[in-house]
């Protein structure tokens, strides 16, 4: 229990660092020096020290939203087997709970955005309600695949210890598609390029960033930290699949896991540097690709299972 607690806390503490890595990669591609790697910590501390300005249109939901979405992201992290170690919680069906907790966070992000009466935020909220529908369908397809492979429905059975390697052995080629599909879901759910652009704030075309326009001070800090945690959660899952090997030496395993995590974040950064954000009507196509890939992986796995 104690090591799991430590891993959980370290995940929260490290999440901002990794998020800053993306900025560094982007700066590298642009030929700039970029912000320091601790920039997100500075931002968080700065925000926590500030006060807030609330819109006169808002209600208590606007204040509840940031805390609740942060709480949901934290709860999701409690189920993540960091570096393949046992997570804080694990029980049958926990994956479904985690997905629904993230949905709860989304509900309140949308509700907080609708609270401001701003048309821009409404626009972002509508998109935030739209794309995850496809994402969730894809996610559940992936779950079906993993269930077929392991006959178990908990994160532990997919991502803990030697399980990922076992998955690769059982169904190598489909799992490849699962990794890609999961990566697309990661980009969509965490509002990264090419679905959303976290770098610009004030445009009509944004999703997540426009929804948090009116938040300030500690509330904004909660949102930021929550989104770092959420990104860490997805990246942790992808990293376990990308680097499924176990050396048997705990310290080395830990190091290798963080290297794999680093690779995932760098991949996100590279994506953001080399791609432009899609036009809004192209985004569903992109997200649908992850659904198609997951579906395809399921079919192929069934074929291979024969």
């Amino acid at each position: 229990m104690l090591p799991s607690m430590l891993f959980f806390l370290s995940a929260i503490l490290l999440a901002p660092f990794f998020a800053a890595l993306i900025l560094k990669v982007k700066a590298f591609f642009a030929g700039k020096k970029g912000p320091p790697l601790l920039i997100q910590y500075y931002t968080l501390i700065k925000l926590f020290q500030k006060g807030s300005v609330y819109s006169t249109s808002t209600t208590f939901i606007f204040k509840l939203g940031p805390v609740l979405s942060f709480c949901c992201a934290l709860s999701a992290l409690m189920f993540l087997p960091v570096a393949g170690r046992p997570a804080l919680f694990a029980f049958r069906g926990d994956v479904i709970l985690v997905l629904y907790l993230l949905a709860l966070g989304r509900f309140f992000t949308i509700a907080a955005a609708m609270d401001t009466a701003s048309p821009f935020q409404g626009m972002g909220a509508a998109r935030e309600a739209y794309f995850p529908i496809i994402c969730e369908a894809a996610m559940f397809l992936i779950l079906i695949l993993l269930y077929v492979l392991t006959s178990n429905l908990q994160i532990k059975a997919f991502f803990q210890g030697g399980q990922p390697l076992l998955l690769w052995h059982k169904a190598g080629s489909p799992l490849m598609f699962v990794v890609i599909a999961l990566f697309i879901i990661l980009l969509t759910e965490n509002a990264r390029v090419p679905v959303d652009d976290p770098a610009t704030h004030l445009e009509l075309t944004m999703i997540h960033e426009v929804m948090v326009l009116d938040h300030s001070g500690p509330d904004l800090a909660f949102i930021e930290l929550g989104s770092f945690c959420k990104l860490f959660f997805y990246a942790g899952l992808v990293a376990r699949l990308v680097w499924p090997f176990e050396t048997g030496v705990p310290a080395l395993d830990l190091l290798l896991f963080f290297l794999a995590l680093l690779a995932v974040y760098v991949a996100v950064g590279v994506m953001e540097s080399v791609m432009a954000r899609y036009r809004m009507d192209k985004v569903p196509k992109f997200v649908l690709t992850s659904f198609a890939l997951a579906f395809f992986a399921v079919i192929v796995t069934l074929e291979l299972a024969k």
Partner: peptide, 25 residues
């Protein structure tokens, strides 16, 4: 399973809409 996922996604959209448009703003 997939349609349940879609249904719950839709339900989230439906009720954020109902709440957001009628009760908020």
């Amino acid at each position: 399973i997939v349609s349940l996922a879609i249904i719950s996604g839709l339900a989230l959209a439906v009720f954020t809409k109902a709440l957001g448009v009628a009760f908020q703003g």
